[in-house]
Design a protein around this nucleic acid. Structure first.
Lengths: 285, 285
DNA sequence: TGCTGTGAACCGTTTCACAGCT
DNA sequence: AGCTGTGAAACGGTTCACAGCA
């Protein structure tokens, strides 16, 4: 879970203040420093805390201790406090944190005070799901444009927004000031789509296509790859089976399993949702 | 969790299977040790290498150097070599790696030689996308069951598999020997669904619902949270804007951008797809 | 000569433990 | 008395640089 997608070999990732003889190098503004200073891993968790806090807020809770909040978020309290310390000191010693204050500060830190217009490219099953998904995109991330190659989809409204042609990506994105692009196309088209999004002014891309995208330095890419997730799980199944085959007692695969529950702080993929649903359906067993 | 000092000493890449009939005393099987020893981050990248290798294989390439493969996968060659070293020594010094050998070894390591039956719970937009998504689930991960609460969906086939009731999760999963569960329900139902899946014998869960799941020790959970991904991107947009506001030259938001391209090795979310599409649509600009 | 495999240095993240405030 | 905020230690993963082998 590293952070940035470093360049290649040496290339000298000159992130912060590398005294490479630059002119006004040293005196970098505090705000920028602050933002840069927050570890990527912490940023991901802040989003989780935010979701939990929103839930508490709705339930009328006004104060939480680091211990409580940590439990809800599935991390330990020390980590939580350290994470929060990156954004400032907004707790009260001996008491805890005020929910509303924390929400505000995290939102500010994550840049959620500004709405980021989103474009979804590739209106297949997944793109459809994303476009319709009111619970997440519309919550601070309004979908401003949809694109697909299929002529049959042209102008068909999905989730209220008519589908545009991929050829118009650059113009439409510029027009509607899209800052975040979501690529839900097959692998083949992805790089091309990516290039156009970038040309259209998009600075961040969420990539669902199974390809490594090439982007200019100033563009941030995050990738979500379902196949990789599955394969990682597969690895764990295999590992488990190996262990089971060795440990005398539990040999079967589908036994009830040991006692103690484990809260899934979930190391890997970052995650959280500000609120709502993953989807438009209704499941409530 | 684990601490144990890994014994590097395995010069001769010793095949997976360990004579399990032997004394179950101290001697912890090498295979188990090996599997345990591979860092999670490396596992995720192995999946990426596998995808790239499959592509090379299809194109008829038989040999790659670490440098080439690394370039395709968006990582640096040292990391790639270290990752591959975790699974054994299958390269030839002075030459490189044989594609087919590497594919075989990675598949073995990831446990892809065995098919893992998958159940998808929550057949909304996202669940639909997952169920229909031939490119990823069917490739070594056959969808064996679908579940939803909605009575209207009952028995309706989606992607060829009829939807079952969530009440039947336990029985159906046991019956069809499902090992991996995918939760694509809203947050509310997720924990309940998770519990049932576990009861039904599922050992790995891919969770799209914005909740921290509680699971028994022996169950592995990975979470994919679109909202968190978006918020992380939002953070980067904000950071970028801050920088832009400070750096004299580039002040605008949507300028063409600096020169050098950056290959998106993409630290964060793991990813890769063994092959195919993210979705059923056709996009090819 | 050229490329792999890997010990060792390095660096970011997590955990610990306690000082400092309320 | 209790809980936050944070240096410092511990840990794990990444990068370096080179020994070892084809």
């Amino acid at each position: 879970m590293t952070a940035h997608g470093e360049g290649e070999r040496d290339a000298a990732g000159q992130p912060a203040n590398v005294p490479s003889g630059s002119p006004e190098s040293i005196a970098v503004p505090a705000a920028r420093e602050r933002a840069r200073a927050i570890p990527e891993a912490a940023v991901a968790r802040l989003a989780v805390y935010l979701r939990v806090l929103s839930g508490l807020d709705e339930r009328g809770t006004t104060t939480v201790s680091s211990e409580e909040l940590a439990a809800f978020a599935g991390v330990n309290s020390a980590k939580l406090r350290k994470d929060l310390s990156y954004i400032g000191s907004y707790g009260t010693r001996g008491v805890g944190y005020e929910v509303s204050v924390l929400i505000g500060q995290i939102e500010r830190t994550l840049g959620l005070t500004k709405k980021h217009r989103v474009a979804v490219v590739g209106i297949g099953n997944l793109g459809h799901a994303l476009a319709n998904y009111g619970g997440f995109l519309n919550r601070g991330f309004p979908v401003a444009a949809l694109f697909d190659l299929d002529p049959d989809l042209l102008d068909v409204p999905v989730g209220g927004i008519p589908v545009s042609a991929v050829d118009d990506i650059v113009d439409v994105c510029r027009d509607r000031e899209v800052t975040i692009g979501v690529i839900a196309t097959p692998a083949e088209g992805a790089q091309e789509v990516c290039d156009r999004l970038v040309e259209g002014g998009v600075v961040c891309i969420l990539n669902f296509a199974p390809v490594v995208l090439r982007v200019p330095e100033h563009v941030e890419v995050r990738k979500v790859d379902l196949a990789v997730e599955m394969q990682i799980l597969s690895f764990h199944v295999a590992r488990r089976n190996q262990e089971a085959a060795v440990v005398p007692g539990i040999a079967g695969g589908t036994d009830a399993g040991p006692p103690g529950d484990r809260v899934n702080g979930n190391g890997n993929s970052k995650s959280a949702l500000e609120r709502g649903d993953v989807d438009g359906m209704v499941v409530r067993p």
